[in-house]
């Protein structure tokens, strides 16, 4: 049996009070925000921040970025990962670019471990915004991981575009990852 999948539609400009209400100051509980790792979660604390740029180079102030990641031991909090994860680490973050003065998305989390012997540590990203009729998938890798050199997903990407998937350390455990929708350094998006 095959049913047709429901088409995607844009998240629009007014998602904040539905999807990230606490971040934007609305009186409704959020299921997730940018603070992904409660104090008791093991692992190296990192911040991942960046901005989203449109095809004219303008900063996008109404994008929604979602992160899905493994814990510091490389385990996902999901029934399909039989290893189980760090008990209080959910692995999901969500941040809109409308509250920071520089329109950054900001995730405070733990650095993920490698999920297996092949893949380098990475964050999985869903990006959506007004003007996108369907969300886009990308990944965030870390510049200081030697295993990037052998990561099978990075190897699917032409060498001259790989840098668009790699967050750069900017000091103090902070990594910068900007997303370019278009242009010479257009971020690689995946068909998952």
């Amino acid at each position: 049996m095959t049913l047709r999948q429901t088409p995607s539609q844009t998240v629009g400009p007014y998602f904040a009070y539905g999807l990230s209400p606490e971040q934007y100051g609305y009186d409704f509980a959020s299921i997730a925000g940018g603070d992904m790792a409660p104090a008791e979660v093991e692992g190296q604390r990192i911040r991942v921040e960046g901005r989203v740029f449109d095809g004219a180079g303008a900063v996008v102030p109404d994008a929604l970025v979602e992160i899905w990641q493994a814990d510091a031991q490389g385990r996902y909090a999901h029934p399909s990962d039989p290893r189980g994860s760090n008990a209080s680490f959910k692995g999901f973050g969500r941040f809109g670019t409308g509250t920071d003065k520089q329109n950054r998305f900001i995730f405070d989390t733990v650095k993920p471990g490698a999920i297996d012997a092949g893949q380098a540590p990475h964050l999985n990203v869903v990006l959506t915004m007004r003007g996108m009729l369907l969300h886009a998938f990308t990944r965030i890798y870390f510049a200081d991981e030697a295993s990037n050199a052998t990561d099978p997903v990075l190897h699917l990407v032409p060498e001259d575009r790989r840098h668009t998937l790699i967050a750069q350390p900017i000091g103090g455990n902070v990594y910068r990852f900007d997303i370019q929708m278009q242009g010479a350094h257009e971020t690689v998006f995946f068909d998952v």
Partner: peptide, 21 residues
């Protein structure tokens, strides 16, 4: 101005894609 212009790159599903929040 908000749509990707390059073709999407096919990503074979791994544990990262078949799991989720």
């Amino acid at each position: 101005l908000r749509s990707p212009t390059r073709p999407l790159i096919a990503l074979p599903q791994s544990l990262s894609e078949i799991t989720g929040p």
